[in-house]
Nucleic acid binder design. Structure first.
Lengths: 193, 193
DNA sequence: GTCTATAATTCGATAGAC
DNA sequence: GTCTATCGAATTATAGAC
């Protein structure tokens, strides 16, 4: 009958509410009510609601960025790298679906300076993907296509994984999911001459 | 030196702010300031902020739904229908990018009953797409793949078009865009035996 | 570590003059 | 149709008792 709050339970509850109602529409009282405590209690765990968002967004954003850097700086071929990127996304998304949801949908509510830092991070991520796809076309591993459309479509098709995963009640085999997604996305990009 | 507000200018300004800051974070005073009037003035144009969101979301949602219904009930083949869906999305998104942004990102802030109506509408849209892809596999126009992953990836890859279009400053030829996107997305789905 | 109480601010919306 | 003035509710966060 433990009623005590752990930081972990607090974060979990907050993330779920942020996903369901949005960060701005979720009040400290909402989170407190879900944990059956008073709102003031929550301030033993965080400095502010704003700081909580910042911590959660950048924690997961850094994981994506670091993961992609390792892929980018590897000796894999371009199309092998793209498969590794799909794999990275599936692994992070199935491990931290609600944090990815926050990353995709609530970064606008970071304070201004931090929002710019976020956009720099995201821009760097997108540029690495663009480079890899461009290299794939150069060595003719990938079909020749409009680079911007290809980059955008690739990123777009994996970005919404979190919402599907959450809706499915997480009843998905991550390994099979990665196979299916790589298959679908990369088949359209590969050069078959 | 016309300072008068038209309903059109009001909607345009509100949509842009909703996209930049999010619906919840945009105050009536924000919109008023951008139009260089007082907040009270805005209530000559709308009944409430909530009603404004509702009107704008369902106006564009209905256009997507009706457009897809027409495609669904046509005599085109499944893969021709998919191409028509991409075309529908490109046309609506390039014509009403900020309204599409609202549709994708802010539906959570509809009031509860209307939110359910929205989800019913979206579910119906997704089911039609799922049907078309399933039929494409049956008649072997499309490769055999996991139906859920294919449907999700297809929808996902066109959903973020609005953000790209807005970022590009709308400097895109819609016809060429439709061609590039159809090409990218459908190449990976077609059966080549 | 959790509570009660409340300060300080902000927001949506209305009343009523012009 | 736009303004000034303001109400009432809601929100983040803090102070201080236990």
């Amino acid at each position: 009958m433990e009623r005590k709050i752990t930081r972990e339970r607090f974060i979990e509850t907050a993330l779920e509410l942020f996903h369901n109602k949005g960060f701005k529409a979720t009040t400290m009282r909402d989170i407190a009510k879900a944990l059956q405590v008073e709102a003031a209690t929550l301030y033993n765990y965080i400095r502010s609601k704003q700081q909580l968002l910042d911590d959660l967004v950048f924690e997961i954003a850094d994981q994506f960025h670091d993961g992609l850097s390792n892929i980018y700086n590897s000796s894999y071929s371009p199309s092998e790298k793209l498969k590794a990127i799909v794999d990275l996304n599936v692994r992070l998304t199935t491990a931290y679906p609600y944090q990815v949801a926050l990353l995709v949908g609530e970064w606008k509510h970071l304070e201004e300076v931090r929002q710019q830092a976020f956009l720099d991070n995201r821009g760097s991520y997108e540029q690495m993907v663009r480079d890899i796809i461009g290299q794939g076309m150069e060595v003719q591993e990938l079909r020749t296509m409009d680079l911007e459309v290809a980059t955008y479509s690739f990123l777009s098709s994996i970005r919404w994984l979190f919402s599907w995963y959450i809706e499915q009640g997480s009843a998905v085999n991550p390994v099979e999911l990665e196979k299916q997604m790589s298959d679908f996305i990369l088949k359209g990009m590969q050069n078959n001459d």
